[in-house]
Design a binder for these strands. Structure first.
Length: 315
DNA sequence: GGCCAGGGGATTA
DNA sequence: TAATCCCATGGC
């Protein structure tokens, strides 16, 4: 397959780190290679992405992104445009980080933990189904569920290291499936949500699939919440990760912990957390959320004992 | 064997 | 409106 790949390069990219981007919980189909690069699938194309920081002669805070993909059918200019948008390269994260950091020591620590996060602009349909799968689930298992879903129902797009690589299944395919056809994916009770939501999208999801960021957030959220298996958290993730709604602040169990333990808010007062985020983080609430989410998750992983003490502290 | 995971839906109170 | 239970699955 490697002979079929084409190369795309972006130079002098700042505020960029592969681990921060692909391991911060926003995407599920990218995996780290032995050389530190990441391989995955986006919009029906297999890709491998590497990042090399400039040496001391260049801008030390910047580097070069190199992407090998089998995006063969598109003109080079369209491919360049696709990756530029997918990796959110036109956004000035340095400015956003400075804005979020002023007068917020918690955010300063969070950003310092993963300063290279960028919010990917992912496919709406894939993001919707992926985050339905995410409910009451953990990230490794979400990834395996999605891989199985792609292997069983996605279009084959090539082979990699002797394994078949598949695209995310189409609306058409999933909309004709019955719950039983999803049994191999080990989706549990979410299988019914996915089958029903797929039929809804096939039937009336035109506006969702074709518009997106042009549509007002309120209207889009209303539609998403009408889908089976989609509540506030899933709807918010879809809007943030696939519709450029950077002000949206998804609240899950980890964000609730951050807000209660580090921002001193009531554990269950989700609406107050939303208000707090809107006040403090404004139009970049979603990006702030991603720094915080990754911060608390890394803290829990790195030092479980200290993390447990933090959580059990009855202040 | 109970608890937890990027929650949502239905039923109670 | 808020609280509670249940929902499959798998890792620990």
């Amino acid at each position: 397959m490697s002979s079929d790949l084409v190369k795309q390069v972006f130079e002098n990219v700042r505020d960029f780190d592969l681990d921060d981007i692909f391991d911060c919980g926003q995407c599920f189909r990218w995996n780290k290679e032995a050389d530190g690069s990441y391989s995955g699938v986006a919009e029906g194309a297999f890709a491998n992405i590497s990042f090399r920081r400039n040496d001391e002669r260049g801008d030390a805070k910047a580097g070069t992104v190199a992407i090998w993909s089998n995006h063969l059918t598109e003109a080079p200019s369209l491919r360049e445009k696709f990756w530029r948008n997918y990796l959110d390269l036109d956004r000035d994260y340095g400015a956003i980080k400075r804005l979020l950091s002023t007068e917020d020591p918690v955010m300063r620590r969070a950003i310092k933990t993963s300063p290279g996060i960028r919010i990917l602009n992912q496919n709406k349909w894939e993001t919707l189904i992926s985050f339905i799968i995410s409910q009451n689930n953990n990230i490794p298992r979400i990834k395996s569920c999605i891989e199985q879903l792609c292997a069983e129902h996605g279009k084959r797009i090539g082979t990699r290291k002797g394994r078949i690589v598949c695209a995310f299944p189409s609306v058409e395919r999933l909309s004709v499936l019955r719950e039983d056809d999803l049994a191999d994916c080990r989706l549990g009770y979410r299988a019914r949500y996915i089958a029903e939501t797929a039929r809804r999208i096939a039937y009336d999801g035109g506006a969702f699939l074709e518009t997106g960021e042009q549509m007002p957030s309120e209207k889009m959220e209303e539609y998403l919440l009408s889908l089976p298996g989609v509540g506030p958290k899933v709807a918010n993730c879809v809007m943030l990760f696939s519709m450029k709604k950077t002000e949206i602040f998804p609240i899950d169990v980890w964000v609730r912990r951050v807000m209660s333990k580090l921002y001193g808010m009531g554990e269950k007062n989700v609406s107050a957390m939303r208000d707090c985020a809107a006040r403090n983080f404004g139009e970049y609430g979603g990006i702030a959320q991603q720094y915080l989410f990754n911060y608390i998750r890394i803290a829990a992983r790195a030092n479980p004992a200290q993390y447990e003490r933090l959580l059990s502290d009855e202040d």
